[in-house]
Amino acid sequence: MKKVFSRPKSLKPTPFRYCPGCGHSLVHRIIAEAVDQLKIRTRVIGIAPVGCAVFAYDYFNFDMLEAAHGRPPAAATALKRVMPEKIIFSYQGDGDLAAIGTSEIIHAANRGENLSVFFINNANYGMTGGQMAPTTIHGQRTTTTPSGRDAKTSGYPLRVSELLATIEGVSFVERVSVDSYKNLMRAKRAVTTAFLNQIDCKGFSFVEILSPCPTNWGMTPQKALQWLREALIPVYPLGIIKGKKCN
């Protein structure tokens, strides 16, 4: 009998402890599959963020570094510069990358560091219990915007992908989502492209992944996917923003 589906070698046989319906486990899986398919598992070093995905190192079956909140792009810069033959990626959430780490991400991009960055946008701070993130959309209720985000006091949803696409050092930016099988496959192609760009020394690649957080959105997993489609995607349109797909 032909085996058609199995656990990627790049994932440890550890059950995911993320909340039911959380997008992190899906994103971990597509990254692991891409790493397997590109046969780079023994060359990869991933950097875990501060946030729910700090535990990424419990699941990925390759070398992992945990960095301070927002600082993975700086640590990644050094790892890549001292070991140019290795494949370095950072995995960061919207608090990590779009708030406390804006300086590090912009300048790693601006130096054109040959890195792959995976940015998980779930429009809130998940691990700390659902506070407002820079990516929280207008009117979205969080534990620190109990009446919904109001631009007058809390500003606007930050479109990091569009921002980074303006930087000369950036070679590839795509926004994807994990709300459907079709979108998940697109997300995997984007992740693969980001790795291939690094292998081909094309410079900084950035994939923003819209991901559900049912627990903190206060929704069932199914409702969360619907809200992602109906409320999040209109604010954060999917597609390639800069560069070309590799495959």
Binding site: A67, R71, A74, A75, T77, A78, V82, E104
Partner: peptide, 13 residues
């Protein structure tokens, strides 16, 4: 902050 985090990355290597 970036400087010391770069040192953190290089040292990890």
């Amino acid at each position: 902050i970036a400087s010391i985090n770069m040192v953190y990355g290089a040292s990890a290597a």
